[in-house]
Amino acid sequence: MTDAPDPLLDGTHAVLTPEYVEFRFTLAGLYSRFLAWFFDALLVVALTLALLTALNLTLGAAFPGFASALGIVLYFLVDWGYGIALETFWSGQTVGKKLLGLRVIQRSGVRIGFYHAALRNLARPVDRLPLFYLVGGLSALLSGAQQRLGDMLAGTLVVRERRLKTPSAIGATGGEGLLADPLFVARVKRLGTEAREVVLSAVLRREELRMEARLRLFSALGTKLQELLAMEKPAHLSDEKWTLLVAAALLPRTA
């Protein structure tokens, strides 16, 4: 009989693409999420104290006690604003999550937006009840996907970032001449955020896929990229090498 997995340790979340290719994400455990929250909480307290000090210096003399009365309100505003702003504009990360190598994503595997960041952060007061995220921790233990109530509401997950290195052969596709074509590069740069993430994720994870799934994925991507870029794929390039070429155009050029 096999041991049951420890819910405090990392699990996995599988995402099946429309091409029936499966990508797996490692879920963040409660220990790492608590440490990330602890670092973020210290920053929120420091920011709140700094703002309160500034208020006391500017308003303290004219309105005694007024700045101090705003302390609790100001703390919640900073706390909510900190999480919502950073997770929206920093691709699902806060300073604490960055330090611990964690990221918030949608259940579909793509990055979150303002709507998701706002929902999961506005639900924090409930998750924190009665103290130290007891409600949130229990819901994460019971959910099967390590989701606190805010994550369930927003349809999000907290995952561990994988340290994937950019393959050295990413530009060695046989179509390097296109990388010097300003029209091709300009069209690639206009790709939307989701299209960019799909391309780069497929390129970085392609070695993990079985050959059949790999061929199916890049066939679909090759066709879609021709449509998005409004240009034909060079006849001598395979769908995978065409996608690699697009990914190379997305990455910063090195001297």
Rank of each mutant, 00 (worst) to 15 (best):
V95M: 00
A235V: 13
L200H: 02
R124D: 01
G177C: 00
A248S: 14
G155F: 07
G113M: 06
K189Q: 15
A154T: 08
L99W: 07
M211A: 14
L164R: 15
L191Q: 06
P5G: 10
T193R: 15
L209Y: 03
L30T: 09
R214I: 06
G175C: 09
Q146V: 12
Q106S: 09
R205V: 04
F38N: 09
P252D: 12
G109C: 03
V158W: 06
L57G: 15
R190A: 15
V135R: 00
A117F: 03
G96F: 03
L8M: 13
P64V: 10
Y115L: 13
V104M: 04
G155N: 08
L221N: 03
S91D: 13
L183G: 08
R196C: 05
K233D: 06
V198T: 11
R111M: 06
Y75D: 05
F114Y: 05
W242Y: 14
A220F: 09
T173Y: 04
A28P: 00
L164I: 14
D6S: 12
A145Q: 13
L228Y: 06
A62F: 09
K165W: 12
D181F: 12
N56Q: 10
L42H: 01
F218G: 01
R128N: 13
K241M: 15
L209R: 02
F89T: 10
A172Y: 05
M231R: 11
L217W: 06
T243K: 10
L57W: 13
L179M: 12
G60D: 11
K165T: 14
A69S: 14
L221V: 04
S238C: 11
K233I: 09
A169P: 00
R120I: 03
L153N: 05
T26K: 01
A54Q: 06
S238D: 10
E87D: 04
G192Q: 03
L251V: 11
L99I: 15
P5A: 12
K97L: 04
T2L: 14
A123G: 00
W242V: 10
F38I: 11
G96K: 04
W37Q: 05
A36C: 05
L8Y: 13
L228P: 06
Y20D: 12
E227T: 12
R196K: 10
T53K: 07
L131I: 13
F38K: 02
Q147N: 09
L27M: 07
F66G: 08
R103D: 01
F76S: 03
R210Y: 05
V110H: 07
